[in-house]
């Protein structure tokens, strides 16, 4: 069965393109465009992996990540932060809230796909 990926970004163009890429790679994709939506869908749909933008309306990516990682029921879901904020401090913050990976935008497709594959294997 295809693995399910939850894609969270507030940029519709990025959602459209990433969704296309993920489907091509054989994944099932669900999407969310703000932090609140992301949290609800993560809890309801139980995806196998989450790709999470940081600067999100309503609830930022850090908070979404922390809330999921502090919840026994969801903390096993790997989270890749995909952000245009690439400063050291941003990455550190990602680690602090328990993200499993950090990829900066613009990203190399192979890097992102490789990371997804690795995390799904574990």
């Amino acid at each position: 069965m295809a693995k399910k990926i939850l894609l969270v970004d507030d940029e519709p163009h990025i959602i459209t393109m990433l969704e296309n890429r993920m489907k091509h790679a054989g994944y099932e994709v669900i999407t969310a465009c703000d932090g609140q939506d992301a949290l609800t869908k993560a809890q309801k749909e139980k995806p196998d992996l989450i790709i999470l933008d940081l600067m999100l309306p309503k609830l930022d990516g850090y908070k979404v990540c922390r809330m999921l990682k502090f919840d026994e029921k969801y903390k096993h879901i790997p989270i890749i932060m995909l952000s245009a904020r690439a400063q050291e401090a941003d990455k550190k913050m990602g680690e602090t809230v328990g993200a499993d990976g950090f990829v900066t935008k613009p990203f190399e497709p192979q890097v992102l796909l490789g990371k997804i594959k690795d995390l799904l294997k574990q």
Partner: peptide
């Protein structure tokens, strides 16, 4: 940096695909 990279991401990804 954020504002420039975000549109660059979809341009890159679109062309790449």
């Amino acid at each position: 940096s954020h504002e420039l990279r975000t549109p660059l991401t979809s341009v890159r990804e679109g062309i790449s695909q």
